[in-house]
Design a protein around this nucleic acid. Sequence first.
DNA 1: TCATTTATATTTACCGGTAAATTAATGGTT
DNA 2: AACCATTAATTTACCGGTAAATATAAATGA
Lengths: 337, 337
Amino acid sequence: MENINIKQLAKALNLSTSTVSRAFRDNSDINKETKERILAKAKEFNYQPNHYASNLREQRSKTIAVIVPELANNFFSQAIHGIEKIARDKGYHILIYSTDDVYEKEVSFIRHLHNGRADGIIMSVTGEANDHTYLNELTQKRLPLVFFDRVYEDIITPRVITNDYDSSFSATQHLIKQGCKHIAYLVINKNLSIGKFRMQGYIDALLKYNIPYDDRYVVDCTNSYAKNNVILKQMLQELKPDGVFTSVERLAFATYYACYDLNIAVPEQLKVIGFSSLEIAPLLNPSLTTITQPATKIGTEAANLLFKMLENPESVDPKEKIVLNSKLVKRRSTENK
Amino acid sequence: MENINIKQLAKALNLSTSTVSRAFRDNSDINKETKERILAKAKEFNYQPNHYASNLREQRSKTIAVIVPELANNFFSQAIHGIEKIARDKGYHILIYSTDDVYEKEVSFIRHLHNGRADGIIMSVTGEANDHTYLNELTQKRLPLVFFDRVYEDIITPRVITNDYDSSFSATQHLIKQGCKHIAYLVINKNLSIGKFRMQGYIDALLKYNIPYDDRYVVDCTNSYAKNNVILKQMLQELKPDGVFTSVERLAFATYYACYDLNIAVPEQLKVIGFSSLEIAPLLNPSLTTITQPATKIGTEAANLLFKMLENPESVDPKEKIVLNSKLVKRRSTENK
DNA sequence: TCATTTATATTTACCGGTAAATTAATGGTT
DNA sequence: AACCATTAATTTACCGGTAAATATAAATGA
């Protein structure tokens, strides 16, 4: 049996297509019995309104696009899970795009989403060294956009972020209170907004405790395991820090691997703390002290914001900024004997 | 500037819509200069063909749906990453659906995908205790479907799986060779196909080494951390196994937590091995011996299979079964002093 | 009784693109 | 000059639904 359309169904029921159409939409006036008869027949024939025809006519897709830098990442997969929960409740579908931290892909995805495929976008951006004014096209065309976690500061659109500055300050402070004097700060992209805020928290905490800031201790890493291993081992040997603060989860792992290789004892010789959404941080060797972002909550909040924009664009201030708090969870990696 | 359509663009160029349309599709005959003129103007106006109109006309969506039991899971997020890579190359978009292991959601997703939203489906199923003959509707309507990892045995459609039986056998054998005599096997859903195969490998390995099979050692777990903790602690205290083999990653973590709580030393008192796609298995305390599935590869293979079906349905045998090999990686959790 | 409201169904004109069928223009051949 | 082939464009009829405008019949009220 090939796919059936509304015309065939209408003919089988001896009704007009528009009456059949009404049976599937709540608002219009239609006899209750007729409606039931139609729905029964539809079930029998396994009919469902063609999605593309409806969308074309109604000018909306009931679909949102989610753009993230990577998929195989605890933070983002939890955030997506949060987004999904909300979207599903609203009867929306979700398109997924992963940029692999490549700016060009981000631009291309965004551009291609302007053809009606999605009604709105939820995005965590790649970097900000590049020109991203192309995003302003979005607002001109009114395709609603919500940023989460990694945002572009100069694009005006609602966002959901965490208290990165405070968390970073606390994390650094924690290391200092545990006795660290030479704290390295590991980043992947210094230019990224969260990179900047997190770094400022680190710097200010050092200042407060009269520890001189030395930019050799700010280490630029990459997305490659192999390269990071080289970079980190060199850094650990040259600078001999007694504390490491990683701005992203992956770099905490990289630090562990480097310490294993160099036989550096954590936390005795080196204390480690990092931003991380890893659920099994307690199972690491040693268990990892983390700043944990409320990943799922970030996702649900971002989705809620987007749907508010979709339902009533006026109701959301384009400068809306929801700030959620991360949690510092102390574990063995920063313990003092 | 509101969204522009082909008519307005055509008018601006003093051409017919169909000529403009041609400029965006390679095949048809159109003057090269005209084409360039159109494309230039399109760029200027930031025009792109409306996706829903094209799809309605062409009767295909250039979209595939991916249905998984959960998103925040290393295996699935890696697999999705693999799928994405292939799909992106082919110019396809990806819809994501997570069932949270709820059968009803699976049915509902599948049903709703029959309205043209997707051209094909890649799925890892929830369970098989339930009636899933509804899936046969799919083949009748020729919406191509590829299973990966968790499959329904009795639905005839191409699939990508791993050598679960062999891996399980090896895993159990490994525990035995490391001196284990009482090996518990932890499952979440015994009825699931992979559950069955994996379990058979476990049973047969026991047999081969003359270890009596005792079904009290097959422990049914859940998806809840809290419940698993109770179940496992009770089991560990009552049965005092010296080896644990977990059929899914999460249960290895649960075992670790239970051992921490009960002060059971791994691997001295209890050896642990598990199916897992965790990239940081070496960082656990103790580092975890794993059977690692080629998650990304599974994703790419599944996607390739689906696209082969989309491009030429005849070219794929509905009984096609791609079997990839998992890898046993020995680490501290099964070491002998 | 006839007008008017109410309930329910049908007609019709789109939504934005696309491709088959058709037309128009150009150039070459006999 | 008449004919045909080739190229390049336009006309036209959809794809499958949807809602405004319209029609029809039954119910209500003056």
